[in-house]
Design a protein around this nucleic acid. Structure first.
Lengths: 171, 171
DNA sequence: CATTTAGAATAATGTACATTATTCAAAAAA
DNA sequence: TTTTTTGAATAATGTACATTATTCTAAATG
């Protein structure tokens, strides 16, 4: 027989699902399913950024000192469709913190203003230089005295590819 | 009346969906839906990495010169659950390409071997130094002559937080 | 009275199905 | 014959629903 009757408070308790919040089914292309699962499992690659100057003693990184949660892609790439990477070669820009082998993040949608570090194709050769506009004209300057500044004029075959926003240096 | 009858080849043609491949509904926590959508729209943040030394003239980045497709998170972070970021302060490690204000990527799961750059808490103060094991003992050395090496012994209150794998420098 | 048990209640989750979008071609109209 | 129309065919997509998981308590049991 039924042992029924109303019983308040029964039922599976809320908030014990995998994500501890409501979910919705979203269609994902099959080739991306595993990537998306991974992305979800680490909560969108949002990792803690700690403040550098910390006072107390530390057994382990404590949540109290988290400055913010950071996703490298979102933090470093503002215009995904206009961004690409280039590997730097040579030491002409060490003064700007760019070493040989570093990966440069380049945004093609940014305006190459004077003072910005840009990727330029000079006669078909890619280089990274600082753009400098003076009364004498527009120049591409290395951050290293051993290199000569290159003057840009209509005759010179120079194409600015984009503006360098960050440098990734492996140690 | 019906104008019916069998007609082969009719129907919406395959491969004109948003992703041009079959999809499956996957449950996504509501707070992550927009993130996942964005992630999908740019195909998982995989952006082109170009070779630095290019020969031909370039009207625009050409596919022929793509070295590989890169996702910064996947490229820089091998152990997401063990990785965190710290902002560097001071100039004791400029020799290693670490400038004040840079974001350091730190992997706690890597073994802090001699020669590696590590994040250490010395008496509760976070610092970045190179670990050096010599016949005289274990040291934390700055990459800058103005700073004194710190000897690690049992008495000293030093905790190694993790190994620095990469440096992100904004220009 | 103490213990066990069979639904009742509700959250979490995966997938079947209904809906929408699009193209094709037979039949109707011109 | 040429053009137009309308239902057939099929892909794409969103969501309702069925299923599963979990906890609670009234009733049954001893």
């Amino acid at each position: 027989m039924g042992r029924g009757g109303i019983r308040k408070g029964a039922g599976r308790p809320k908030g014990q699902g995998k994500y501890n919040e409501p979910t919705k089914p979203i269609r994902i292309p099959e080739s991306m399913i595993s990537d998306v699962m991974k992305y979800l499992s680490i909560k969108g690659y949002k990792l803690p950024l700690y403040a550098s100057t910390v006072q107390a003693g530390f057994p382990s990184p404590a949540d109290d000192y988290i400055e913010q949660q950071l996703d490298l892609n979102q933090h470093l790439i503002k215009h995904p469709t206009a961004t690409f990477f280039v590997r730097a070669a040579g030491n002409s820009m060490v003064g700007a913190g760019i070493h040989s082998g570093d990966i440069l993040i380049v945004d093609r949608s940014l305006n190459p203003k004077s003072g910005k570090i840009v990727i330029a194709a000079i006669d078909g050769q890619l280089t990274v230089k600082r753009l400098s506009k003076t009364s004498k004209g527009l120049f591409l300057k290395a951050e290293n005295d051993q290199y000569q500044a290159i003057k840009i004029n209509d005759a010179s075959d120079v194409v600015i590819w984009g503006v360098v926003t960050s440098v990734i240096h492996k140690v």
